[in-house]
Design a protein around this nucleic acid. Structure first.
Length: 657
DNA sequence: AGTTCAACTTAGGAGGGACCGT
DNA sequence: ACGGTCCCTCCTAAGTTGAACT
């Protein structure tokens, strides 16, 4: 039954597609009892146990610390100090030791889990850091309306400065932005201001704008000592407010600073761009902590909106934002136990999908033949989510956000069907704006026959899709496919393209290529760096220079050899050796440059970071590093190593996703 | 069954400091 | 030491999901 059925109604589109999956060879699972799909996979638990035992042994050796009482100390004070000392002593060895050292004490990934949605038993923190108050402008910095100087009230002035700061940005030229800004600005004006200022086009913010530019220049030109002072002050605030205590661990908080007021900048064509994002006061803040903790104090003379003790959630502080009316949270850093465990769990779910994905694929292909429209729709949606790694695509309220779509919210205008295209039959052309208004453009050859059903259809809701998925596998949702396909792609690519003969830079190029394949699959794009063309040229110049240098070195080697043949003495032999070495060194340098050029060119519009941070099981990369002798530092920077500490702690060189 | 909402993950860009070669 | 490039960190918007509500 190789066919594509495209169902279209006025607004929403669904495709029913047949056969050919990029990875359809493995049929052995298909006949197995469907019930098996629902069974929880036990192997990962076994792995956990094995790991636990191993770590227990190590713990017995190395630990004389009180696991709970001293944990905070050990984790945050002792270990860095220890690492620092060792670092001086043996940098080379440390490459492998450091990650496990940093976490060798608290095996936080293995501590007992809570049940019933309880996330913690003890939580203590200092509350948020508020945005600094707005300083009034010096009196020589003037605002002009219709060419005439006008002194603004402090509230109107503050909002005006937000606009002035963005004057260089093209945002401020957009009609929607200006309209929204103007409307919200008027709300902050005194009544005389309101009656005087009637046209944004007559407002002159240029002195304000110059003033802020000068300030930022001054900041850059500050002396080292002054910069150092600011740095120290920031560090002090970080130490005071940037950590909390959750269940015996001192944990880093991700965003302990409250978002400052300003003008909202949505992504893409956002209907609310330019609106005033108001200042958050203590009275807006809900604090969450445990009853028996030292509660954070609101600033003098103020009160929190509420203090609650909800241990079924992970956030420390929340407030409601005024643009969309959504809730914002202060939560923990990715390095924290609570985030790390969740991350691990996410990849374990994806690995369980691996075990039954072929069955699920067989089923949705089968479902294309279903008599029921809903089933066919569901099956096609799932097909694209799986094959193209599309996002689920929830319905959004029109006019509230930019018009972006995902799989289930695709509309007719986002797809074109080609009976024949570029020599291939039955091609579906996707062209739509996805998350963050990033364009998704792809031409996907599908099966042999296409037929179009124009019967009006109900949109398949993501909730319906996810309910169905939940029945196929415990914990399965649409986004698990993205995680699964991303990770399995990395694993396959690495297995395929890593050449153990290669030197380290070449292996890293292979890694980046594998990473890139994933980024392309997930459509992770970036704007080409502004200086891209130029920096590419510079690199090419360097390569050319290096080539010449190599040619010279080779010539010299040749003449040295000739010389040695004639003279036959030790000195000239040595000269040959050293010339040989020089050639080798230059060849290596040249190769490194060329690799760099290739890598950069291929990476022009592709963002690797997102997949690395959110989709690729870190154990794949760590195992790869161990297997091929690549220092983990070459793949993960410090922050990333902290986030993936759980994986560094547990992945062996033979780990396969 | 549909809708709304809270909670949490995923996302690209800005800005600035680190780092590199000269 | 300097200037340009690169990479990291921060920032916060924009998604997904499950549960509560109607």
């Amino acid at each position: 039954m190789d066919q594509i059925i495209v169902a279209i109604r006025s607004r929403h589109v669904l495709l029913h597609v047949g056969s050919e999956h990029r990875d359809s060879s493995d049929k052995k699972h298909r006949d197995k009892d469907k019930e098996r799909l629902k069974l929880k996979d036990g192997s990962s638990d076994k792995q956990k146990d094995k790991h636990k035992e191993k770590k227990k042994e190590e713990r017995a050796d190395s630990s004389s610390f009180d696991l709970f009482g001293d944990m905070v100390q050990i984790n945050n004070v002792l270990v860095p100090a220890l690492c620092g000392a060792i670092l001086v002593a043996c940098v080379g060895m440390l490459v492998y030791i450091l990650p496990s050292l940093c976490f060798f004490m608290p095996f936080r990934w293995e501590e007992e889990r809570y049940t019933d949605g309880v996330k913690w038993k003890f939580l203590e923190h200092k509350g948020p850091v508020f945005a600094p108050p707005c300083d009034p402008l010096p009196s020589n910095v003037k605002f002009y309306y219709d060419g005439k100087h006008m002194k603004l009230s402090s509230s109107a002035e503050e909002v005006a400065t937000f606009f002035a700061k963005m004057l260089d940005h093209e945002y401020t030229t957009k009609e929607v932005f200006r309209k929204n800004f103007y409307k919200d600005w008027r709300k902050e004006m005194m009544s005389e201001e309101k009656s005087k200022i009637t046209d944004l086009n007559k407002c002159d913010f240029s002195e304000m704008s110059e003033y802020f530019k000068a300030q930022s220049e001054a900041r850059k030109a500050m002396t080292k000592e002054d910069k150092q002072k600011i740095k120290e002050e920031n560090e002090r605030i970080l130490q005071e407010y940037g950590f909390c205590i959750m269940d015996n661990h001192k944990e880093r908080i991700a965003n302990f600073r409250i978002e400052p007021p300003g003008l909202f900048r949505g992504r893409g064509d956002h209907p609310k761009m330019g609106m005033l994002k108001r200042r958050i006061r203590p009275e807006d803040i809900i604090v969450n902590c445990s009853k028996d903790s030292k509660h954070p104090k609101p600033p003098p003379g103020t009160k929190w909106k509420e203090v609650r003790h909800d241990n079924k959630v992970t956030w420390l502080v929340s407030w409601t934002e005024n643009i969309q009316g959504s809730i914002k949270y202060i939560m923990l850093n990715p390095s924290s136990r609570i985030k790390g465990e969740k991350d691990w769990q996410k990849y374990e779910t994806a690995r369980r999908l691996k075990k039954c994905v072929e069955q699920i694929r067989a089923q949705y292909r089968d479902d294309w033949k279903s008599k029921e429209m809903r089933i066919r729709q569901r099956a096609v949606a799932l097909y694209f989510i799986d094959k193209l790694a599309l996002r689920a695509g929830n319905e959004k309220e029109e006019g509230e956000t930019a018009d972006t779509v995902g799989c289930c919210s695709l509309r007719v205008e986002h797809l074109t069907l080609h009976q024949e295209m570029d020599g291939q039959e039955y091609v579906v052309e996707f062209d739509f704006l996805g998350k963050d208004s990033i364009r998704y453009y792809n031409k996907v050859p599908v099966e042999k026959r296409v037929s179009i059903i124009s019967t009006p259809l109900r949109l398949i809701l993501t909730s319906i899709l996810n309910k169905h998925l939940q029945e196929l596998m415990d914990g399965l949702t649409a986004k698990v496919f993205r995680t699964y396909n991303a990770s399995i792609t990395l694993q396959q690519q690495l297995n395929e393209i890593t050449n153990s003969e290669d030197n380290v830079p070449a292996k890293i190029l292979s890694y980046n290529r594998a990473n890139r394949a994933v980024a392309i699959l997930c459509n992770h794009q970036r704007a080409p760096p502004k200086t891209f063309e130029k920096s590419m040229q510079n690199l090419q110049t360097k390569i050319d220079a290096k080539k010449e240098q190599l040619a010279d070195a080779k010539r010299e080697l040749k003449s040295a050899k000739a010389d040695a043949k004639v003279r036959r003495d030790e000195k000239s032999k040595k000269a040959v050796e050293s010339k040989k070495k020089a050639v080798q060194r230059i060849e290596e340098q040249l190769m490194k440059l060329e690799v760099q050029a290739t890598d950069r060119e291929e990476n022009k519009q592709i963002a690797l970071g997102t997949s690395k941070l959110n989709y690729l099981d870190p154990r794949i990369s760590i195992a790869w590093c161990k297997k091929f002798g690549i220092p983990i530092e070459k793949i993960y920077n410090k922050t990333q190593r902290e986030k993936f500490a759980w994986a560094i702690d547990m992945a062996e060189k033979d780990f396969q996703f």
